Simulated assay, not measured.
Amino acid sequence: MKTLIASAVFAAIGIAAIPPAQAGELWRATGLEQPESALFDATNNRIIVSNIVGNPGEADGNGYLSVLSLDGKMVTRHWTGGMDAPKGMAISGGKLYVADITKVRVVDLASGKLLSSIDVPKAVFLNDMTSDQAGKVYVTDMLADAIYRIDGDTPELLVKDAALASPNGVFADGDRLIVASWGKGIKPDFSTAEPGGLLSVDLAGKVITPLPGAQKFADLDGVIAIGDTIYATAYMTGTLYRYKAGGTPEVVAQFKPGSADIGTDGRSVIYVPLMNEGEVAALKLD
Rank of each mutant, 00 (worst) to 15 (best):
Q22N: 13
T192C: 14
Y271C: 04
L70N: 07
T154A: 13
G227T: 01
D41N: 09
R149H: 00
L115N: 11
A214H: 07
Q133A: 15
L39Y: 03
S116W: 04
R176H: 11
G88N: 10
G205T: 15
S181D: 07
L198Y: 08
I13Y: 10
W27A: 05
M89H: 09
G227A: 08
A218G: 09
I13V: 08
I18S: 15
G196M: 04
I13A: 02
N55K: 01
G213A: 07
R105V: 00
P86W: 06
V170C: 11
V159D: 09
D128V: 04
G238C: 04
I101E: 00
G57N: 13
Y271R: 02
K122Y: 05
Y241K: 12
I48R: 01
G54I: 03
K184M: 12
I270W: 00
I224V: 10
N276F: 02
G57F: 12
T233H: 01
I208R: 00
G94V: 11
I230S: 01
A110L: 14
A99I: 02
G213N: 07
K113E: 15
D145H: 13
T264E: 06
A260E: 03
Y148I: 08
L283H: 01
V251G: 06
F125Y: 14
D161P: 00
V170Y: 09
A8V: 10
R46V: 11
P167W: 11
K87W: 14
T140V: 09
D221F: 02
L4C: 09
D60N: 14
A165W: 01
E194G: 00
F171M: 04
Y138Q: 08
G72Y: 05
L199F: 06
I52Y: 05
N127D: 04
D173G: 09
M142S: 14
L115H: 04
A180H: 08
S117C: 07
Q215E: 15
V120F: 02
A234Q: 11
D108C: 14
G174C: 04
S69R: 02
L4W: 10
L177Q: 06
R242T: 02
A245W: 02
Y235V: 06
I147Q: 10
L158H: 03
T264S: 13
Y241Q: 05
L203V: 00
R242V: 01
A12E: 15
A193Q: 12
D219H: 10
L199C: 06
V106N: 10
L39I: 05
V251F: 03
G205Q: 14
F125A: 10
D119H: 03
T130N: 08
G93K: 01
R105L: 14
T192P: 07
S166C: 08
I226W: 01
S131W: 07
D108Q: 12
S116R: 15
V137Q: 10
G169T: 06
A8F: 08
R28C: 01
L164C: 07
I224F: 04
V170T: 14
S37E: 04
D119W: 00
P20I: 08
P273L: 05
S7A: 15
G197D: 05
G263K: 02
R176D: 04
Q133C: 13
D128A: 09
R77W: 00
A29E: 03
T30V: 11
T237W: 09
T140N: 14
R267H: 13
F40C: 09
K244W: 00
Y243N: 10
T102R: 15
A172C: 03
G14L: 11
A134D: 13
T209I: 05
G135K: 06
L114C: 06
N168W: 00
L211F: 03
M142K: 11
I18D: 12
K284C: 00
